[in-house]
Design a protein around this nucleic acid. Structure first.
Lengths: 204, 204, 204, 204
DNA sequence: GATGAATGAGTGTTCATTCAT
DNA sequence: TATGAATGAACACTCATTCAT
């Protein structure tokens, strides 16, 4: 029933994430969805409303993902598992950075942040502020549990997250999200994580 | 004489770096340059040609900057100085990432890389491949000179460059390039560099 | 039951009388009636049919009003009373020119007469031909009854009706029909009528 | 040279005066002018700007006409001539109410006054306020010159102007301005003026 | 060097209307 | 009775570009 609206959203996201919001025309979207242009306006007030619904959905998804991760910090074994990267790998990499929907929205945010202050704020929050803050909390927890040597957890979070961010930018937010690129990302990122925790272990 | 052409280029870059190539119209450019739309076509074959001239100039600048850095590797004291970050600070940060012209082109590349394979290649080259390769060579040189403990120089380059990249993205390639943002970048990045070299020193 | 149809008619008239037929959209009407656009087509064949029903109702109302006035001419005391303006004031002013429904239709006729020959004929008939002819008959009756000096009754009707028409155009068919405007109209028009009959009386 | 702009204005006026501003499309105008729709936007900022230029020109014309009439009041023989209707006939009837340009603008004002407060003000000024005030001044002048019996000049102006207005509405601002309609107007209006001045003469 | 004038294709959006439910 | 969903045609307007001057 609400197929058409969903199709419009998904096609729009695909195109917005490639060319940016402005450069995609309603005609472009409709050609791909196979509807007439006027039909779009039954489902959305205007072009902008398509963008806004996408951003809203992204923020809901990201919020859910993050609150799942944070709830693990309260489990006894949570911080361990997060350290040993199963969890981060599953939630943050597979279901967020490499998830088809989220990946496209993040590209879109990346492009639109210069145009649109609202977008810039969302981008900064979900790509920098939130992940860094979370990682810092993880390290604090590990320090409290005496698993890690006491140190500046913010600085550690940066050291830990910066390569993840770099690999993501280089492999996941450049051209089309192919399986090869995902593989390159995973290889780089898991190597980094392993070495990072080895170095920490040595220090103890 | 060639004032008008220069004005067109600079105004175009300003706008392209904010909204992306497609979303800027010849009208927008001309309004700011204070000429009529038809006049653009005396100086440039078409809109695309403006973009291409900008990309060409950027590549020339970047090439010059990089070859200056590389020529230092052959000086005896070069690798030292690069390590002690005067040089990187001056050439790579001040005259490249934070230079008005280069900063704007890099934003533009960031936006256009999804649309335009040629642009993606330029972006990847000058933001990832070249800086990482150069840094790796610096570490190799330092290792050969026994100043650094022998290790995987590519991996070290990543560890060194990733936070620089992250801070650049976060502070220099988001909204307008203000003095406050430049200062945030410098503070973050110099702290990282200092700690990085301290850690290396400790290991020796 | 037929509430919706009635609402559509009244809202349409309101809007048509302000902006003209063409400039009012089905959407505009439906927004005010609080129904969906498709619902209109249950009650009316098309947009034009709304207009036609309004015109029909107006003509019925105007016919009734006029035939009431005319039937008084056959009463002995009718022409007297018409002369002494109670009747005209009540029927022609209050229940016609200043009646909410009729006033709006007349505005609409005024606007649409240039577009639509049918409308022009209705406008001319009910605003010029009928009132002038009726007034002429009144004066003829008064002359026959020796109450007025014999003269050209058509010319007298013009002299009598022209200021009424002017005041109506100036106060009743310009912006919103406010109480102040009604009062301005009444003041102007009753002064005119009084002076007119005084002058006639003097001549006798 | 500026032929195209002039053509756009004249064709627009023709159509606006028939259907009203909103109901005329840029397409309609261009079809008649024989240009492409985009060309309109070289000459005018937008559709509204066409209307505004027409209103401006009308106001200039009307101002000129009125100031010519008023300057005659200061001539000794002016008020006489105005009374004997040569002047009014030439300036106010032939060059204003029946002038092709002014006639069309007045129709347009008549239609648009309900939509547009600015238009309503212009209409009221040039159709009611100004002509009535001028006529009142003429009568005052004639009274001072002892040519007319002293009386309420405002009231006389109304009596004099109302039939002119009625005939204008009935013959000049209904359908197309044909020669027959102009003739009907002239016949009605000159008869009224003659009788009006005869009646005044009798009173002396 | 620069512009006045034009244009064909395309922009987002609104229109009256249809029709199955 | 009313609506959800769709549509073809039209809407005002912008686009990059051309070309004679």
């Amino acid at each position: 029933m609400q197929d058409t609206k969903e199709n419009i959203l998904m096609v729009s996201l695909e195109l917005f994430s490639q060319r940016g919001f402005q450069a995609v025309s309603i005609r472009d979207i409709c050609k791909k969805v196979n509807i007439k242009e006027s039909s779009v306006y039954y489902h959305f007030q205007d072009k902008r409303a398509i963008l806004e619904e996408l951003l809203q959905r992204f923020q809901n998804t990201a919020t859910t993902m993050m609150s799942r991760l944070e709830s693990m910090l309260n489990d006894k074994s949570g911080p361990h598992k997060i350290g040993s990267h199963d969890i981060i790998g599953n939630y943050f990499f597979e279901q967020y950075l490499m998830d088809d929907f989220c990946n496209k929205v993040i590209r879109l945010l990346l492009i639109e942040q210069f145009n649109n202050e609202e977008v810039h704020i969302i981008y900064d929050h979900w790509i920098f502020a939130k992940p860094l803050a979370f990682q810092s909390k993880v390290f604090s927890a590990l320090m409290e549990m005496k698993i890690m040597k006491h140190a500046d957890s913010d600085y550690l979070a940066e050291k830990y997250y910066a390569p993840i961010f770099l690999f993501a930018q280089r492999w996941l937010f450049c051209g089309p999200l192919t399986d090869e690129r995902k593989q390159s990302f995973r290889a780089n990122v898991y190597q980094h994580m392993q070495k990072f925790f080895e170095e920490i272990a040595e220090e103890n």
